[in-house]
Design a protein around this nucleic acid. Structure first.
Lengths: 127, 127
DNA sequence: ATAACACTTGGAGTTAACTCCAAGTCAAGG
DNA sequence: CCTTGACTTGGAGTTAACTCCAAGTGTTAT
């Protein structure tokens, strides 16, 4: 797969794909005889994984570390597991914050609804 | 309340508090006779609200708009409600993304658990 | 009354995560 | 053979959201 295809497939700019590779967020992609990136299925899996994690707000730093550990082989399995558990913990904390905010927003919106209703009543009242 | 007290109360740096005021993310805080900020209860409510919204990832831009509408009075009630509804929509979308990522993480961690267990079994096996 | 300290302002600097750019290479079509 | 267009690289520029800084002023303790 070319970078153009992958870019469309995952809705990530070509620049972002090259950037991710440059900083080690995805393993190095193979080039064909003329030096052009040729993404494998495996590469796509990585991109999908990284995109999913980034969408949820995981820091690039942590993901780079994960990819690095992965490339060092089986000896790092425990470390990778721990890393994911830590990221999950942080993710859950953020989700809880967001849940609180959502409730706050719901409340505020309900209050505004009420105010709007009151105003409408007032408009209909004969003076 | 002084900026030091407010800073401690909400765990926001003094710089951040001044920055928020400068860009209109909170209404202007009154100064005492010697020009020093004196935060009211109302100011604190704003800071709490803004902090909650920022924690959940709402953009400063949107919150500035909200504060601006608020300061224009009752005529903007409908607009404020719409703004909050839009922000809530975006918040829910982000939470859904995060939920997906959480499930993905749970799955991956479970796989690693399994691998670790297998490895341990192997170690205990007599060669 | 003077040193120490908290505060003020406007503006510059920082960080994460892209995003853009210039200069160069290469394969394919006319 | 020459142009076109997609690709390459390393490096510079951008954006959001702070964070820091310098120069100045007012209050407090000795």
């Amino acid at each position: 797969m070319t970078i153009t295809e992958v870019s469309k497939k995952f809705d990530l700019s070509q620049d972002t794909l090259r950037y991710y590779e440059r900083i080690g967020l995805i393993p190095r992609v193979n080039r064909n005889k003329s030096g052009i990136r040729d993404y494998t299925e495996e590469d796509c899996k990585w991109i999908e994984f990284i995109k999913c994690m980034r969408n949820a707000g995981l820091q690039i730093e942590a993901l780079i570390e994960y990819v690095g550990l992965f490339q060092q082989g089986d000896a790092t399995i425990e470390a990778r597991k721990e890393l994911l558990i830590e990221q999950r913990k942080q993710l859950i904390a953020r989700m809880e914050d967001m849940q609180k905010t959502l409730e706050h927003l719901n409340y505020k919106i309900a209050v505004y609804e009420q105010v709007v209703v009151e105003k409408e009543k007032e408009l209909k009242r004969p003076d």
